[in-house]
């Protein structure tokens, strides 16, 4: 899958796990969220172009988007070395954040690539 090289953004350790008390560094958290948003947008655009070139239409395209997002989630989890809670406050962050924001970019680039390659 293209574009996993962008996951090298700094995901800093933000939890210190003292007496199982949740301690977070707000700035690092925000940085982590930014990295997630960034990689999701990137993957949405790349995925859109790929879907367009492959000529996927209607439902297949949206399934492809879900697939790309799932791959991104898995990649982010791997990048966090499967210890989500030392980087984010909940699972929702890594699974759902930026999901719908990316959809618009995905549709645009999907349409663009599809039109250039297929309909003319």
């Amino acid at each position: 899958m293209a574009g996993h090289d962008n996951l090298n953004g700094s995901t800093e350790k933000s939890g210190s796990g003292m007496d199982d008390l949740p301690t977070f560094n707000a700035e690092n958290m925000q940085n982590n969220m930014k990295v997630i948003l960034y990689s999701r947008t990137f993957m949405a655009i790349i995925g859109g172009v790929i879907a367009g070139i492959l000529g996927l239409t209607s439902l297949t395209g949206f399934i492809f988007y879900f697939l790309v997002m799932a791959i991104t989630s898995v990649a982010l989890t791997t990048k966090a070395k499967f210890s989500i809670h030392s980087y984010f406050d909940s699972w929702n962050r890594i699974v759902f954040d930026g999901f719908f924001g990316g959809l618009m970019s995905f549709v645009l680039f999907w349409t663009f690539a599809y039109d250039i390659v297929h309909i003319f």
Binding site: T41, I45, M104, S105, V107, L108
Partner: peptide, 10 residues
């Protein structure tokens, strides 16, 4: 106009 916002943020 709406869809390029993501690209600009990149």
């Amino acid at each position: 106009l709406f869809g390029l916002r993501g690209l600009f943020s990149l």
